[in-house]
Nucleic acid binder design. Structure first.
Lengths: 135, 135
DNA sequence: TTAAAACTATATAGTCGCTATAAGGTCAAT
DNA sequence: ATTGACCTTATAGCGACTATATAGTTTTAA
């Protein structure tokens, strides 16, 4: 299977596949005489795994780490669970920060409901005054 | 006032100030004979405005846009409000996405509570199987 | 058969908002 | 005279791609 087919079957751009290879995430495939990359089913699974990790918003470094655990299947999976726990708390703190931000934005927006001249706009005034509740 | 003082009074790195100048966000200040930048109170206000916008997570492009509105103070502020509304819905969709992600991660994490061998780890299995609820 | 379309390859630069590094010039105090 | 704190410019790095340029190969269609 060539790169285009792999790309289509996993739903990834060919550039991204070459990028993952350069990053050491996807093992270098064989080559045809003309230099074209040749992939196997292993590559399909591997790439799909990477993509599912990315959907979970794991970083490439974290995916690397998971790969290392997979390569040593007899060790304890404590580290895998710890990685996920860390990631979950990371996501949670992102949510908290964004919720605080949303509150700030909504309260700022409430300062100008009508169609004023810019110089009288409560929104711009609000930012300029800087009396936003700092997070 | 020189760049270090401006940086300190607003709480920004000097590098960032030069960066904003190159981006056209902060007007080029005057120069001393030795080439040092000289800033005024206007610059302090301007930089503080930019920083408050950044705290609200507005992009530099959006800050540019706000600047253009400020420079024409007699036009209607509809566009200002629209910019903020867009930004609020952007933040809200980020929150929604992250909440869905958190749910996915938590349910994945629940697949392995104990200390197993990596090859039996429900978390890795869960990612590999790919039966996560795609958002 | 030939020409165009579709695919592949590499290398390089751009995105965003900084941050870090290198290599140097200026200034005040010791 | 030299140390240290400040200033200057230029350049590279972060993360995870995405886009562009340039070129070679294969497939399809006229």
């Amino acid at each position: 299977m060539r790169i285009g087919q792999l790309a289509q079957s996993v739903g990834v751009d060919t550039q991204t596949i070459r990028f993952y290879e350069r990053q050491g995430l996807l093992p270098p495939p064989g080559r045809q005489e003309n230099g074209y990359r040749v992939y196997t089913e292993k590559h399909v699974e591997r790439l799909a795994f990477i993509r599912r990790c990315r959907i979970l918003d794991l970083s490439l470094a974290e995916i690397h780490e998971l790969k290392r655990y997979q390569d040593d299947p007899h060790q304890s999976c404590t580290a895998v669970n710890a990685l996920l726990d860390d990631h979950i708390s990371h996501v949670r703190s992102q949510i908290t920060a964004l919720q605080a931000l949303e509150k700030q934005l909504v309260s700022l927006r409430a300062r100008c409901n009508d169609d004023r001249e810019v110089k009288a706009c409560g929104v711009l005034a609000g930012i300029s005054e800087g009396n936003m509740h700092q997070q």
